[in-house]
Computed example of a mutant assay.
Amino acid sequence: MLVLFNEYFNFHLNIFYYVPYRAIFSLLSSFFINLYLGPHFIYHFKKLKKYQIIRENGPKTHRLKNETPTMGGIFIISSILFSTILYCNLSNIYIWYVIIILIGYGIIGLIDDYKKIKYKNSKGLTLKWKYFFLSIFAFIFISIMNANNQSIIPTQLMIPFYIKNSFEMNYLYIFLCYFVIVGTSNAVNITDGLDGLAIMPVVFLACAFALISLFSENINNSNFLHIHYVKNSEELAILCMAIIGSGLGFLWFNSYPAKVFMGDVGSLSLGGSLGTIAILLHQELLLIIMGGVFVFETISVIMQIMSFKIRRKRIFKMAPIHHHYEIKGILEPLIVVRFWIISLILLLIGLISLKVC
């Protein structure tokens, strides 16, 4: 918005043009907005008794968290939207694509959280209805994105660590986009089971995509790093910085012992947004590498379900895998920090792959 005002009124203020300035202000704004909104949100939700519904078959230690407010994703989304609208160039279509998913998936998550609280049941929306709404929204969104700009949905898949660097997929790429958006949103949702566990990997991914969006903007840098050239992608860096600031601001209250949980409204919207950014930057497979913690968490659930249905035996003491370690007696903060470390290492491996291929 400030960029458009600067152009319209001819202020000629460089601070409104330079991406690094706007990116830093975006991060700081979303961070301090969360620091301001957090205590008010927690106070009012405690007063309204909007508490996290703990699943009955979960770890016993989690029953102590049954009076912790949930739906903190509301102020995460609010701070991201404020910083994005204020500092991004709103004529950039990429920004609106991410905003659509952020709000759309946030609404689906909000409905899910509301049902859990209203009926005091940890299930919320049934699995089929949740996937139905996520899938319909994703397909409609991808169709609109493809109709508006054919170059956004290419037929080539960028492959890390592969010398040819790309693979022709034709229209199957559209289905890959669907799985990236829906899969990432659910993976973040599954991972969000311990205090601060999901939010830091989200911040790490946003950091990486902020860098990649800046490199993708310059054709020389994109050729040097063997990444897809994406015109006007630098505005996504400002949005990513808003996610980083908002994530760090939320972590202020979500670190152990958590004073608030993000709920599905936060995890689905953040996951869907990261998946959308990965698609816009053509780094879908890189998302799988750098977001390996989310992938491992999701695979652990799939393996547990398949093993129990086929062999009537469980592989893990409880899925997702972070609950397995909890039941084994490892302290929650220790599990969280170790997962953060793994996430950072995977992030570095992913960034290295940009030049290796």
Rank of each mutant, 00 (worst) to 15 (best):
E217Q: 15
K46G: 08
F32V: 11
G38W: 03
F137M: 12
I327K: 06
I199W: 03
F25T: 00
N92Q: 05
P59M: 01
C207W: 15
I42Y: 00
F161A: 00
S216F: 07
S26W: 13
Q283M: 14
G272T: 03
N149Q: 05
P69C: 04
Y256L: 09
Y36R: 12
S267A: 12
A138M: 07
H40L: 15
N6A: 09
N149T: 04
L86E: 07
Y162S: 00
A23E: 03
F132H: 04
L194V: 10
F253G: 04
M290P: 02
F250E: 03
F253D: 01
I117L: 11
F45A: 04
Y105P: 10
V295C: 07
N189W: 02
G38L: 08
L344V: 13
M145V: 11
V301W: 06
N89H: 08
N57L: 15
N149P: 10
E56S: 14
N149G: 06
I152A: 03
G249Q: 07
I77D: 01
N121I: 09
T191S: 14
L331H: 15
V202Q: 01
I243E: 02
I163S: 10
V98I: 05
Y97G: 07
I54T: 01
I53G: 01
V293A: 13
L236A: 00
L214E: 10
L37G: 03
I76E: 06
S30Q: 09
V265I: 15
L346I: 00
I24Y: 12
V293P: 08
P201H: 02
N223K: 11
N148G: 13
L90D: 02
N66L: 09
N186E: 05
Y97N: 05
G196A: 06
I117S: 05
L346C: 08
L4E: 15
I277M: 09
P39C: 08
S246T: 00
I153L: 10
I212Q: 00
F137V: 09
C240S: 05
H322N: 06
T298H: 03
S307R: 01
D192Q: 11
H12V: 09
S267L: 02
F179I: 14
M1P: 10
P201R: 01
N121R: 10
A147E: 13
G193R: 08
F16K: 01
H62Y: 06
K49E: 12
F5S: 14
R311Q: 14
C207Y: 15
G73V: 08
M318V: 07
G104N: 10
R314V: 11
L274W: 01
L37F: 13
T84N: 03
V98C: 07
N186L: 08
A23F: 06
I80N: 02
I342N: 05
L86P: 08
K128G: 12
N218F: 03
I219T: 10
I53Y: 11
K130L: 01
G291P: 04
D192C: 13
F139W: 14
I190W: 11
S79G: 02
F132E: 04
C240T: 01
